[in-house]
């Protein structure tokens, strides 16, 4: 009984971690699933989201000091809310620029796209260093979501509860968008049969641009949400892109629920191993990956690609 009592907080923590992992993977999943493009700049967009949010919450613009001073008088919660809304839009515009550059690589060897996004990742990381410097930054949090609460007889960060809830909201919103709106239908149709979609008069390049911006915007949202947990530094993107890649392959490429379930599994494995076999906590996600892919190469919910047939 005592074992179960001790285990319970770690299970809750595993679910929370899993939701955050899923959130990190959502944008990556969307771009890979719909466009079959591996966006290696996903992590850099994640990092850029953090920095843009930091700029929105605590701007430093000496040239506009009076305006900045007035803006600083707004409640932190308001500025944080603005950051959550605006950061993905701004980073999404970067995503659009990247997609425009990527058009020349479509239909060619995937290495071209990979190299381009890899190069973009390097450029963005250096851009961040130039603008914000290499030092660690912190995103200030409103009081309502900072501090701790009692999880049984243990303290747990209130922000994690908020972040997990936010991840659930984002997952549901993305699902509703893809499944219940005409835009979602267009995206899925474009992925299944682009010839037919084009014949129906839908502008495919614009659709692709939109999907890429949405994916990058999701990376930025994940960055904003993870900033208070992981901290903000230029190289933080690498910490996001590797688990994101693992999760979408584990869940099955292109599957929203696959990414969510895989994220939860990874979170649970990392959380439990952190508590009971701590030296395995990072390795555990890779072991899980090996086990699943050994028995099901397409991942948990992956469908066989037409191109593979």
């Amino acid at each position: 009984m005592e074992f179960l009592t001790n285990l319970l907080p770690h299970l809750v923590n595993g679910v929370s971690l899993g939701l955050l992992f899923a959130l990190i993977a959502l944008g990556f999943m969307l771009i890979v699933g719909v466009m079959e493009t591996i966006n290696l700049a996903h992590g850099s967009m994640f990092a850029l989201g953090m920095y843009v949010a930091l700029f929105i919450v605590a701007p430093k613009l000496p040239a506009l000091a009076p305006a900045v001073e007035w803006y600083g008088t707004l409640p932190l919660g308001t500025r944080y809310g603005v950051a959550l809304l605006l950061a993905p839009v701004i980073v999404g515009i970067f995503g659009m620029l990247l997609e425009l550059c990527m058009r020349r690589t479509y239909g060619k060897d995937p290495l071209y796209g990979l190299l381009l996004t890899f190069g973009a990742a390097l450029v963005i990381e250096e851009l961040i260093r130039v603008i914000w410097g290499s030092n660690e930054k912190q995103l200030p949090l409103p009081d309502a979501i900072s501090g701790a609460f009692m999880l049984g007889d243990l303290l747990y960060a209130r922000y994690r509860l908020f972040a997990s809830g936010f991840a659930i909201v984002m997952i549901v919103l993305l699902w509703l968008f893809l499944e219940k709106t005409p835009y979602g239908a267009m995206i899925k149709a474009g992925a299944h049969d682009s010839e037919m979609v084009r014949a129906l008069g839908i502008n495919l390049p614009r659709l692709r641009l939109f999907v890429f911006a949405l994916g990058v915007g999701l990376a930025a949202i994940a960055g904003v949400v993870m900033a208070p947990i992981w901290g903000i530094r230029p190289q933080v993107g690498v910490d996001a892109v590797v688990p994101a890649f693992l999760i979408i392959v584990l869940g099955g490429v292109g599957s929203l629920w696959g990414a969510v379930i895989a994220g939860l599994m990874v979170g649970m494995v990392v959380g439990l191993s952190g508590a009971y076999a701590s030296e395995w906590s990072l390795l555990s996600m890779y072991l899980l990956f090996i086990v699943v892919v050994t028995f099901r190469a397409r991942g948990l919910f992956g469908r066989k690609s037409v191109l593979d047939a």
């Binding site: 699933g33 466009m35 992925a191 190469a297 690609s305």
Partner: peptide, 21 residues
């Protein structure tokens, strides 16, 4: 889901999801 097709008439490349991954 499959990839959105290439708009241009580029020569076909032996590209599969597995290769990309």
């Amino acid at each position: 889901m499959n990839a959105i097709d290439n708009e241009r008439n580029e020569p076909p490349i032996n590209t599969s999801r597995r290769r990309i991954l």
